[in-house]
Computed example of a mutant assay.
Amino acid sequence: MSQIPMTVQGAQRLRDELHELKTVKRPAIIEAIADAREHGDLKENAEYHAAREAQGFCEGRIQDIEGKLANAQIIDITKLTNNGKVIFGSTVTILNLDSEEEVTYKVVGDDEADIKNNLISVNSPIARGLIGKQQDDVVNITTPSGVVEFEITDVKYL
C-alpha cells in the first residue's frame, strides 16, 4: 500500500479514536457479549447477535485505523518555510472573482476532509486546482456549476 498523506492533527485524531476503541468500546462490547451469553440460547438471542455485530464493526475499524497510521506520511506544515505556494496542509484563502465571496480552506488528506469545517481533500477538484499555485495567482477551477475563476489571496502554513 502506498503512503497516505496526513496532517499532524489528522494523525492525532486517528490515534485518539484508536485509543477510545481499544480501551473503552472493545471492553464494553466484550462485557455485553458475556452478559448476553448468560441469557441462554444463543440462536435466538438478539442481544448476543447485536453485540457480536458491534464487535465486528469495532474490530474492523481498529484494523482500518491501524493500517492508515502504518501507511501514513505525516506532514507537519508548520516546519516548512512559507513561500506563498499552496501545498498539502496549507490553509488557503481564495476569492471568487464573480461573486466576490471569500472562503478559506485547509488542504488535508482524504480521511480528514470535512467540507463543513472547510477541510478539503487534497484530491478534491478545488485542491487539485490550487496545489502548486502561488499567492496572488488567478486560477480557473471546474466546479459542479461550471468553471469558476478564483484569486488566491492568502496562503498560511498553520
Results as ranks from 00 to 15, higher is better:
A127E: 01
A11M: 05
D136S: 09
I94H: 01
I94F: 01
L158P: 08
L42G: 13
Q55T: 02
A72T: 02
R15T: 09
R61I: 10
C58Q: 11
S124T: 07
V103P: 01
V86N: 00
A36T: 15
C58H: 09
V108N: 00
H39C: 11
E17Y: 08
E112Q: 05
D154K: 04
A50T: 11
T93Y: 04
I65D: 10
L158C: 06
V155D: 05
V155R: 02
I74D: 02
R15S: 11
G109H: 00
D98H: 13
V148E: 00
Y48Q: 11
H49L: 15
G146Y: 13
I33Q: 12
D136Q: 11
G146C: 09
L42S: 12
L21N: 08
K156R: 04
L42P: 10
A70D: 10
T104K: 09
G40R: 04
K85V: 12
M1Y: 11
V148Q: 00
K156V: 06
I65W: 13
R52S: 14
I94E: 00
L97Y: 09
K68T: 07
K79G: 13
V139I: 10
G84Q: 03
K25N: 14
H19P: 02
I126D: 00
V24A: 10
G129S: 06
G10Q: 01
A32K: 15
L80V: 09
L69F: 07
D111G: 05
N83M: 08
G84F: 12
E101L: 13
D16A: 14
R128V: 02
S124L: 03
I33R: 05
V138Y: 03
L21A: 03
V103Q: 02
S145A: 14
V122M: 08
